[in-house]
Design a protein around this nucleic acid. Structure first.
Length: 166
DNA sequence: TACATAAGAATAG
DNA sequence: CTATTCTTATGTA
């Protein structure tokens, strides 16, 4: 498993990938959070090797994204090693939300023929691929932001970015 | 409008 | 089984 760290205006983002594709993209307020995000791998005795070269494509996409340009992360291949069947369904659906558009927990639920609105949010909160799976584009049905595991400020920042307001 | 409460589905402990 | 969660709908003032 390889990893690298990207910096952006609000903090850093930890990327990990296997030979198959990207498996994790976690937000870090600072590099001191590295211990937290690597815990998952250490617990499973999965060796982590820093290797920037393997992330050329990702680096470019993220850089463009933070410049405020429209980026389609669907080009990336993913290797999801966490998540239940339900969570994967939610993430897949979330991934279809196009740049700059937003959905609500409710509309997602309807698309999945599902009424457990909170479960949707819960599944999103376990999203291991921040930004690549745009969980920040999912809002409350009253227009509010809803929650965000990496911090609401970040959610707001990402939304502003996509609205061309950052 | 604002706040409390119930209903609802899935998951972690 | 219980508690918790990135929700929503309803009731009450």
């Amino acid at each position: 498993m390889f990893y690298t760290i990207l910096d952006f205006p609000k903090g850093s983002i930890f990327l990990a990938k296997s030979g198959k594709g990207l498996s994790s993209a976690e937000f870090m307020k600072s590099r001191r959070d590295l211990g937290r995000v690597t815990k998952f791998f250490r617990e499973r005795d999965i060796p982590l090797v820093e290797d920037r070269v393997k992330f050329q494509l990702e680096e470019r996409l993220f850089r463009q994204y933070f410049e405020g340009r429209e980026v389609d992360f669907k080009a990336l291949s993913l290797d999801r090693l966490t998540g239940t069947a339900f969570q994967r369904k939610v993430w897949l659906e979330t991934r279809k939300i196009p740049y700059g558009k937003t959905e609500t927990y409710k509309s997602l639920a309807r698309r999945l023929h599902h009424r457990g609105y909170r479960s949707i949010g819960q599944a999103l909160s376990r999203n291991p691929l921040l930004i690549v799976i745009p969980c920040h584009r999912v809002l409350s049905s009253d227009g509010g932001l809803g929650g965000f595991s990496a911090g609401l400020e970040l959610k707001k920042y990402l939304l502003d970015l996509e609205r061309g307001k950052a």
